Amino acid sequence: MNLTVNGKPSTVDGAESLNVTELLSALKVAQAEYVTVELNGEVLEREAFDATTVKDGDAVEFLY
């Protein structure tokens, strides 16, 4: 899956889609429990991480 992460191209191997929690784990995001996630310009509530799917071509920003 090809994404733009914090403005840079990134690839997650072996996945066509992941939820936000899985993406944080796959990318080994440090202190993931404290990060705010913006997906395609929309800031996500932490409670929505498990239910929100990240797909090929999406833009993700991790805000600390």
Rank of each mutant, 00 (worst) to 15 (best):
T11P: 06
K55E: 05
K8R: 12
N19F: 07
L44P: 00
A15D: 06
G14S: 09
S25R: 14
D50F: 07
D56S: 11
N2T: 14
E47Q: 10
V35G: 02
A30P: 14
R46G: 04
A15G: 08
D13E: 13
N40H: 02
L24S: 01
T36G: 06
A32N: 09
E42L: 13
Q31I: 10
D58I: 03
V43P: 08
N2K: 14
A15R: 13
V5C: 06
A26G: 04
V43M: 10
V12N: 02
E47M: 09
V12G: 02
F49M: 04
N40G: 02
A15H: 13
N40P: 00
D58R: 00
E42S: 11
R46P: 08
Q31N: 14
K8F: 10
A51D: 10
V12R: 03
G7V: 02
E38Y: 15
T21K: 08
T4E: 04
A15E: 07
D56T: 10
F62Q: 02
S17A: 09
S25A: 14
L44C: 06
L24K: 00
A51T: 15
L63K: 14
N19H: 04
V54Y: 02
D13H: 15
A48E: 09
V29K: 03
T11K: 14
E33V: 07
T52H: 06
G41M: 04
Y34K: 08
L24E: 01
L44W: 03
D56V: 05
V20R: 00
T53L: 14
L18I: 09
V37Y: 03
L23Q: 00
T53D: 07
A59S: 14
T53F: 15
K28V: 05
A51F: 14
V20E: 00
Y34F: 12
N6D: 05
F49R: 01
V54D: 01
K28Y: 06
T36D: 06
V43Y: 07
V29M: 07
Q31T: 08
N2S: 12
N19S: 15
V5G: 01
D50C: 08
V60F: 09
A15I: 11
G7D: 03
V43R: 12
Y34H: 10
L63H: 14
L18E: 00
T21C: 11
D50I: 07
E38G: 07
S10D: 06
T11Q: 11
V20W: 03
V54P: 01
Y64R: 06
V54T: 02
